[in-house]
Amino acid sequence: MAGTTASDTTILDVNQALYDALSGYIDVNPDTGVSIIFDLPAADSPPTEPTLSVFLYEIHEDLQMRTAQMRVPTYHADTKTSTIAPGWVNVCCNYIITYWDIAQTATSSPGSPGGAPDNTSIKVMNQVVNALINNRQLADMPGAYTRMIPPKDELNTLGNFWQALGNKPRLSLSLSVTVPVFLTDASDSAPAVQSTEVDMSQQQTGRF
């Protein structure tokens, strides 16, 4: 039986790059800070610590970008051989980002109650915004870029989204990340061109 084909890990790398960008602005100290998870808290199991949820809910090919590259042959002069290099396709990863305080409430730290203009939820989401707009290009991921977008229809309205989680609506942010996902390298080769020949002739045309 043939082994499985290795998959491109770009989408997994996006999660790590987002974590690095967010943790640069948010205190993620395990004892006093905010936990960043790439999932949604369970409706019947409220977070026991302040939690930032970065939930990937949709992946699709970005058909609006025309910069994808199909597989193309590459000539190697030293060995006089050609290989067919893998191309890449732009893939769009859509996230919804929310902050969940302890016991799914909007309460904040002492001196900054949940109803205050500078409550913890607003502070954390402000840090999220700053992290994202200052990391349009994700670190160590050439061709990957982020943008904040309006809520998408795929969520079937945010009201239904929150109702499904059994929780009241809260401040959320929709994020779209476009990344180039490389096609599988099948190690195909093409015969090298050994010589070229051009035959040219001149034709005379008469005047009328």
Results as ranks from 00 to 15, higher is better:
85 A>G: 02
162 W>M: 03
95 Y>Q: 14
184 T>L: 01
157 T>F: 00
202 Q>I: 15
74 T>Q: 10
170 R>I: 04
177 V>M: 04
58 E>P: 09
200 M>H: 04
100 W>K: 15
83 T>E: 15
123 K>F: 03
145 Y>P: 12
208 F>C: 05
176 S>R: 10
164 A>G: 12
175 L>A: 08
74 T>F: 13
96 I>E: 06
3 G>A: 14
4 T>L: 13
182 F>Q: 13
134 N>C: 01
108 S>L: 08
35 S>R: 14
76 H>V: 05
126 N>K: 06
141 M>A: 06
172 S>C: 11
207 R>H: 12
19 Y>K: 15
156 N>L: 13
13 D>V: 10
84 I>V: 11
130 N>M: 10
83 T>W: 00
207 R>G: 05
148 M>A: 11
6 A>R: 07
151 P>E: 10
173 L>G: 00
70 M>R: 07
160 N>C: 09
99 Y>W: 08
58 E>W: 14
32 T>G: 02
15 N>M: 11
33 G>Q: 10
202 Q>V: 14
1 M>E: 09
114 G>A: 12
207 R>E: 08
135 N>S: 15
120 T>M: 09
65 M>G: 02
9 T>H: 02
33 G>V: 09
98 T>V: 07
136 R>G: 05
111 G>N: 00
97 I>M: 15
162 W>H: 13
159 G>E: 14
7 S>A: 13
127 Q>M: 07
115 G>I: 11
58 E>G: 08
203 Q>T: 01
90 N>P: 11
78 D>R: 10
51 T>L: 01
161 F>K: 05
27 D>N: 15
199 D>K: 05
188 D>T: 02
25 Y>R: 07
145 Y>W: 09
20 D>H: 11
123 K>E: 14
71 R>F: 01
174 S>I: 02
36 I>C: 11
151 P>D: 13
37 I>E: 15
171 L>H: 05
31 D>G: 01
188 D>H: 10
42 A>F: 01
157 T>H: 10
67 T>V: 10
123 K>Y: 03
138 L>F: 08
154 E>Q: 12
39 D>C: 04
110 P>L: 03
72 V>N: 15
43 A>C: 01
54 V>S: 15
38 F>S: 01
103 A>R: 03
193 V>H: 01
110 P>T: 13
43 A>T: 11
94 N>P: 04
51 T>V: 08
97 I>E: 15
49 E>M: 07
37 I>N: 11
45 S>T: 00
57 Y>M: 04
34 V>K: 12
36 I>F: 02
44 D>C: 01
27 D>V: 08
38 F>H: 13
104 Q>H: 04
24 G>L: 00
76 H>R: 09
91 V>S: 11
20 D>Y: 13
189 S>L: 00
121 S>C: 11
67 T>W: 00
111 G>L: 01
19 Y>L: 05
59 I>Y: 08
128 V>C: 14
99 Y>M: 12
4 T>E: 11
12 L>V: 05
142 P>C: 09
146 T>I: 07
4 T>I: 11
114 G>T: 02
127 Q>N: 12
144 A>H: 07
136 R>V: 00
66 R>N: 12
198 V>E: 00
194 Q>M: 08
61 E>N: 06
4 T>Q: 15
190 A>N: 14
118 D>W: 07
41 P>W: 04
60 H>D: 14
157 T>S: 15
208 F>K: 08
49 E>K: 04
90 N>D: 02
